[in-house]
Simulated scan of single mutants.
Amino acid sequence: MKVAVVMGGITSEREVSLRSGQAVLNSLLRQGYDAYKIDLTRENLVSAFIENEFDIAYLTLHGEYGEDGRVQSVLDMLGKRYTGSGVTGSAVAMDKILTKVIAKDLGIDIAKTYSTVEEIKEYPVVIKPAKEGSSVGIYICNTKEEALEAYKALEGKYPLIEEFVKGEELTAGVLNGEKLGIVRIKPKSGVYDYESKYTVGKTEYECPAQIDEKIYEEVCEAARKIHEKLGLTGVTRSDFILRDGKAYFLEVNTCPGMTETSLAPKLAASKGYSFDDLTRVIIESAKA
């Protein structure tokens, strides 16, 4: 069985994807898989899947053109197996606004959201792209003027405006429906931005999170419900903010990072999965 580890892509998350992909490739080679690398670029977004031979595409792409269903649809049309979630689940999960609507329908708490700056009743608010990940393009706005500037800066990126919920950052993992537990994230800067997320030593992680047992189970179950409702496959990671005993759902990641600072491997390890175990389970659950 030949496995193509697809990495790179054309978004701001390209470098992170390359690091994730290399870690996965090293893992598969250690386990004896016939695996090799495909570096996806703007020039080979489609041709890479036609010109290369493989039985399974192991996707380690983050953001648009990789995690949003578009690459998955190409692979579906070519009749190729691939890891992670399918077209619909990937596309819906990539849209933070739509996913929050679904979460609310499931009875999961979400932060108050606004459609326009004019609707904002109380500051501060967070304005961020609805269809990007990795803490890219986040603005915390304390005034209407700041909100207008942020909204303009994100023009064309489907800005999401929501109440700024200040609290503890949590992320809960799910592997093919199995609850992996929760990591509590403690960024030293106070904000879990791109630098805090991907720079070693900038953030402390508590795994499993030492929080109230009842809240712990509620967050794990909320993550499982999102995973199930969206029909997701493989490993997913749902982010929450815990404030005053209530956990607010933020988003779900269908292709979480697999770097040395990534949270999905930490969560899997807390349940007894080595990094190699995790990549093997993901391969075994690849969509036909």
Rank of each mutant, 00 (worst) to 15 (best):
G86W: 02
E51Q: 13
E118K: 14
G89F: 00
E122K: 15
G63K: 00
K96C: 04
L25W: 02
S135T: 12
K104V: 11
K121C: 12
E122D: 14
V101G: 08
L59P: 02
E119C: 11
S20K: 04
N52V: 11
L40A: 05
Y58P: 02
Q31D: 15
S134L: 07
K144W: 09
Y82H: 05
E64Q: 14
D68Q: 05
E118T: 09
I120H: 04
E64G: 11
T60K: 03
L75M: 09
S20D: 07
R70A: 05
T60L: 07
A130T: 07
I102K: 06
D76A: 06
L61I: 01
Y58A: 05
E122W: 09
V136F: 06
V74I: 15
N52A: 08
N26R: 15
Y65F: 14
K144S: 09
K131V: 12
V87D: 03
S20A: 09
V117G: 00
N26K: 15
Y139F: 15
I50L: 15
L29H: 08
K37V: 08
T60A: 13
I138T: 06
G66I: 00
E67R: 03
I127C: 04
I108W: 03
M77D: 10
T113C: 14
S135W: 04
I120S: 02
A35C: 10
G32Q: 11
R70I: 07
K104D: 14
R81S: 13
K144T: 12
I140R: 06
A93H: 05
G107H: 08
R70N: 13
S47R: 13
A91K: 01
G107F: 07
S134K: 07
T113L: 09
P124E: 06
E67I: 01
T41I: 11
